[in-house]
Design a protein around this nucleic acid. Structure first.
Length: 400
DNA sequence: TGATAGTCAATACT
DNA sequence: AGTATTGACTATCA
């Protein structure tokens, strides 16, 4: 089966990664999706899959986002990437935890305490389905539960799910609540269906801002901070959520600051709206991660991803595999024809991943890309030549 | 069981 | 080499 195949693929990657960092231990990986659930949307239905673009119209503003976002980051990213490019155990350690499971191969059974070995073969590609939207569907809950049941302690769970994006809020369940509000504020989270495109617009802009304004500063600092952050690890999220110090998180942070306060997602209100109703408080729902509970403005995310990939010359295939655990064709399709959030079901997970990736500090983004094996990145690195600004740029001295 | 959604892999295209 | 398109297939839902 394909799934099996997929799973295998992912796993192997993971293994690869693992190999790279022997130290990684299971605990880090341990749990899978915490409280995942199936997403479902009441509304989805019609619209044949190939009938794409239906949603496009729904979400406006996005263009803006993409466009503007571009400028500032590249360099910083590049730098980071480099760092990332080489695998640095020291640094990586922390990362790994988060990233180890690149593909959400959520081993249904395993994850729990198994060891990597367990992972091995076939985990069904975890239908990444995760989370969130559950409430919508009263009846389905059980499924997920079963899987997760295990340990799943909140945090890890999250991570896992995120596969690599520790940064993205998840880690800290504790913060979730608070963050919920804020997190969302960040960008693509979308605007409520209702259209207040404002939400999205807003966000977008914020992001842009960040990029634009802080561009270089960030880069510099981000590198540095990123390290720190990683080392220190937990903080990241904090910072993210709280607007913490680490520069690494740049985008949102800034966004947050500008726009809203952590506590008060002003403009976002509308943005999150739909999902919001549900009390974030609940436990493990990783929900808070911004992307999970809230709506994501798929179009915007698609545009931003597209922009980032271009900017850093990251091939779709690489991104698709490493970050999304999907094929190039799938990614291409999603980027070009993002369906409206409301119409997505399990496909939401893919967008969540993209979204999370966007939210991560560059350093981590790169790591994620790099992780599973030789990516073009590595290849490039190997070859001392450099075409563009690929992710391989100068390596921060501290890195190696 | 049909309709959808999501994905892959092959392949056409740039 | 990278991206877009598309037919086929599986999973899920009503």
């Amino acid at each position: 089966m394909k799934t099996a195949y997929n799973a295998y693929r992912c796993l192997s990657k993971d293994l690869d990664a693992y190999a790279m960092n022997p130290e990684m231990t299971m605990d880090s990986i341990g749990n899978l999706h915490g409280g995942l659930s199936h997403d479902q949307d009441l509304m989805n239905s019609h619209s044949p899959h190939h009938t794409r673009n239906p949603g496009a119209s729904l979400r406006l503003h996005q263009d803006l986002a993409a466009a503007s976002s571009r400028s500032a980051m590249v360099s910083s990213m590049a730098t980071i990437l480099d760092g990332a490019g080489e695998y640095r155990p020291e640094l990586s350690l922390p990362l790994h935890h988060a990233m180890s499971m690149q593909c959400d191969t959520s081993p249904p059974g395993m994850g729990m305490n198994g060891t990597y070995t367990t992972l091995t073969p076939l985990q069904p590609l975890p239908p990444i389905s995760t989370v969130s939207d559950k409430f919508h569907h009263p009846h389905h809950h059980h499924h997920h539960h079963q899987r997760l049941s295990g340990n799943v302690s909140g945090s890890f769970t999250l991570m896992r799910d995120e596969r690599c994006l520790p940064a993205v809020n998840n880690l800290y369940s504790p913060y979730h609540k608070d963050m919920t509000g804020m997190g969302q504020s960040l960008s693509p989270l979308a605007s409520s269906p209702l259209g207040n495109g404002l939400g999205s617009l807003h966000n977008t802009q914020q992001n842009l801002h960040n990029y634009g304004t802080h561009g270089h500063d960030k880069m510099l600092s981000s590198n540095f901070d990123a390290h720190t952050a990683m080392l220190a690890r937990g903080d990241q999220h904090l910072s993210r959520g709280l607007g913490g110090p680490t520069a690494g998180m740049m985008p949102h942070l800034n966004g947050m600051h500008h726009t809203g306060h952590p506590g008060h997602p002003q403009s976002h209100g509308p943005v999150l709206a739909s999902n919001r109703d549900r009390p974030p408080s609940s436990s493990g729902q990783q929900g808070n991660n911004s992307g999970q509970l809230e709506e994501i403005n798929t179009k915007e995310v698609a545009q931003r991803i597209t922009a980032e990939l271009k900017r850093y010359s990251i091939p779709q295939a690489i991104f698709a595999q490493r970050v999304l655990c999907r094929s190039q064709g799938t990614l291409s399709d999603l980027l070009r024809n993002p369906k409206p959030w409301s119409k997505l079901k399990s496909g939401r997970e893919t967008f969540r991943r993209m979204w999370k990736w966007l939210q991560e500090p560059e350093f981590q983004r790169m790591s994620a890309l790099r992780l599973a094996g030789k990516t073009s990145v590595q290849k490039k690195r190997t070859r001392p030549k450099q075409g563009k600004e690929q992710y391989t740029k100068e390596i921060p001295s501290g890195f190696y």
